[in-house]
Design a protein around this nucleic acid. Structure first.
Length: 626
DNA sequence: TTAGGGTTAG
């Protein structure tokens, strides 16, 4: 390439008016990274010799600027051109599409149509990508009609882009119908449809398509892996990753896609292995991979390793997203003061916090009970940091006030919000009314939630539990009838733990595990031991209207207890136990685990829906504030 | 030319 380039440059010195020579050189420069400076010099040379660029040369220069990210120069070329061609528009549309600027792509497309320039099979894929990025179904449909008018609907590139557009706009059936119509498909057509089904949560359909594909590439494998991971089917994601390694070569995107599966399963050892794999394959230097690795360690409860990754990152890679990950890591462990100092360190390093930084920071304050500090940051968000407060930030404040027992103040805050309150706000209020056993506020919050998300069974169950606690059995009956009527089921409690490299899953009351007898035996002996240490079971956490003894029996087989019992039975004394639960840990289990940690001299980490609980010597890191 | 990606309250 270098040789070809120098010989072309030599010929150019002899023929400074030869547009074909310019065109060839620019094409080479477009494909060569970091060659923008040379490209600019060449463009200047054209001016100097007053060579008027023909339509295709102008388009090529624009493509050169676009591909190196200098969209401004590319746009200037268009604005100063007296008669821009459709080729020049195509270059600009491509450039803006690659940088994910859908609004600009669409306005360029409109300008093109306004000048009666014909879009072609090169234009539509990028315009459709913009519709998918927005995403906007109405605009996508309009563009689709343009494709039909030009007879390009079933072109492989255009067709695949249409399948992708419909899938991203939530119309996967439409995407599939189009897919069936296409005679010529390529891997991207299949991949686009698979991604569409995965986005809808139709994991099985995606799996069948993947099986039926005539050929697969890295993107097909990665799309399946990330689809499984995002739909919470962590074991399928991991299994596929192992299969993939035999048949195709994972790249950095694959690593980024598989790590959330480890994080979801809280499989720390597996995560470490994948980290090690990425390192040996040279895939760990990409900043996105480093952030994903940090996130994995944080979600698996290893704050130390997360922090170590962060400290090893080169300064230039410490982006806002990287800082946000570390702020979130502290927050999830309830280390509010550490969240705050990480946030301040980020600001000192000259970076501007974004909306995610504030969500992380405020949740840290909330978990640590830093009420005044959290309120101050919230008040400063817009005036000092120019970040608009959104739903998630309001929800954090409701949570901050509610958790601290200031329920009335939280209610006033929720009612006086500048934006329309959504389920997250009332969900936070309902949760804290539960912790502080304030039935009055709970009813207000629950009623708002029943309007906003009538099909979320969790809200009915939570209120019903609160009625049960205060002995209001009539109300409990009413709510349970409502649940039945709507055909809703309480989502079953489920906990899992990685023991000796395998993830073991337990449901509440589960007796299906091979070691079930041993586990239940262990749990049966536990209450007596605990009572010896001063334990009183809290039966308020059981839903049913049954006798006290039966209630106690129910509590004894909560999924987190099963997982912990299994862990203690199958690991060496002194090994740290890590358990993850799909719901919030219940109050009785929280107390019980404190005792277990003391009786069996074990460190136990429980990650529930919201945060980490680190049990040691009869105490929990949350200080019973959660 | 199209298809896969990290950080986000309850």
């Amino acid at each position: 390439m270098q040789q070809e380039l120098s010989s072309l440059l030599r010929s150019l010195l002899q023929n400074p008016l030869d547009t074909i020579l310019y065109s060839s050189i620019i094409r080479i420069l477009t494909r060569t990274p970091n060659s923008l400076r040379h490209g600019r010099q060449l463009h200047a040379l054209l001016f100097l010799h007053a060579v008027s660029p023909d339509p295709s040369l102008a388009a090529r220069i624009a493509a050169m600027y676009s591909s190196s990210g200098d969209l401004h120069s590319a746009s200037l070329l268009l604005h100063h051109h007296p008669h821009p061609s459709h080729l020049l528009y195509n270059s600009l549309i491509r450039g803006h599409s690659l940088r994910r600027l859908p609004a600009q792509v669409l306005s360029l497309f409109n300008a093109m149509l306004g000048r009666s320039l014909p879009p072609d099979h090169f234009t539509f894929p990028f315009v459709l990508k913009a519709c998918a990025d927005l995403p906007s179904l109405p605009i996508g449909c309009t563009v689709h009609s343009q494709c039909l008018r030009r007879g390009l609907e079933l072109d492989v590139y255009v067709g695949s882009s249409l399948v992708n557009m419909y899938a991203k706009c939530g119309e996967v059936r439409f995407a599939h119908r189009l897919f069936d119509k296409m005679r010529v498909r390529d891997m991207s057509t299949w991949n686009a449809l698979i991604v569409g089904y995965m986005m809808m949560g139709a994991v099985k359909v995606a799996g069948h398509l993947f099986d039926d594909m005539p050929k697969r590439n890295v993107i097909s494998w990665t799309a399946m892996i990330s689809g499984y991971a995002q739909n919470g089917v962590a074991d399928s994601a991991l299994q596929l990753f192992y299969e993939m390694r035999k048949r195709s070569k994972p790249n950095w995107v694959t690593i980024v896609s598989i790590l959330p599966a480890c994080a979801h399963a809280a499989a720390l050892d597996l995560g470490r292995m994948i980290h090690e794999y990425a390192r040996t394959m040279g895939l760990d230097s990409h900043p996105t991979v480093q952030i994903a690795i940090m996130g994995m360690y944080a979600k698996c409860g290893s704050l130390l390793e997360a922090r170590r990754c962060f400290d090893r990152m080169p300064e230039r890679d410490k982006t806002v997203a990287a800082w946000n990950t570390i702020i979130t890591a502290y927050a999830s462990q309830g280390l509010g003061a550490e969240s705050v100092s990480a946030f301040e360190a980020m600001v000192r390093s000259g970076l501007r916090p974004d909306a995610v930084s504030f969500t992380a920071l405020l949740s840290g304050c909330s978990r640590a009970g830093l009420v005044d500090q959290g309120m101050r940051y919230f008040d400063d968000m817009t005036p000092v940091y120019s970040v608009e407060a959104a739903h998630e930030h309001y929800a954090c404040i409701v949570d901050l006030l509610g958790r601290a027992g200031k329920l009335e103040r939280a209610l006033v805050f929720a009612n006086q919000m500048k934006i329309k309150s959504g389920p997250s706000i009332w969900g936070a209020l309902l949760a804290s009314s539960r912790s502080h056993r304030n039935l009055k506020v709970a009813q207000i919050a629950a009623n708002r939630l029943f309007e906003l998300e009538p099909d979320n069974s969790g809200n009915y169950v939570l209120l019903s539990n609160m009625y049960a606690e205060s002995g209001k059995w009539e109300e409990v009956k009413g709510l349970r009838a409502l649940l039945r009527e709507k055909g809703m089921k309480k989502s079953p409690g489920c906990s899992w733990s990685e023991i000796n490299g395998r993830v073991h899953t337990f449901f509440t009351g589960d007796k299906s595990h091979p070691q079930s007898n041993e586990i239940h035996g262990f749990l049966e002996d536990l209450p007596e031991k605990m009572k010896g240490e001063g334990y009183i079971p809290d039966t308020g956490f059981v839903l049913h209207d049954v006798s006290e003894e039966e209630k106690e029996g129910n509590l004894a087989t909560h999924s987190e207890k099963l997982a912990i019992a299994f862990g203690i039975l199958n690991t060496n004394p002194g090994a740290v136990l890590r358990v993850t639960k799909n719901l919030r840990i219940c109050g009785d289990c929280h107390t019980a685990v404190k005792f277990i940690s003391k009786i069996h001299h074990r460190e136990i980490m429980v990650r529930d829906l919201n945060r980490f609980h680190h049990f040691k010597d009869g105490l929990c890191s949350c200080g019973d504030y959660w």
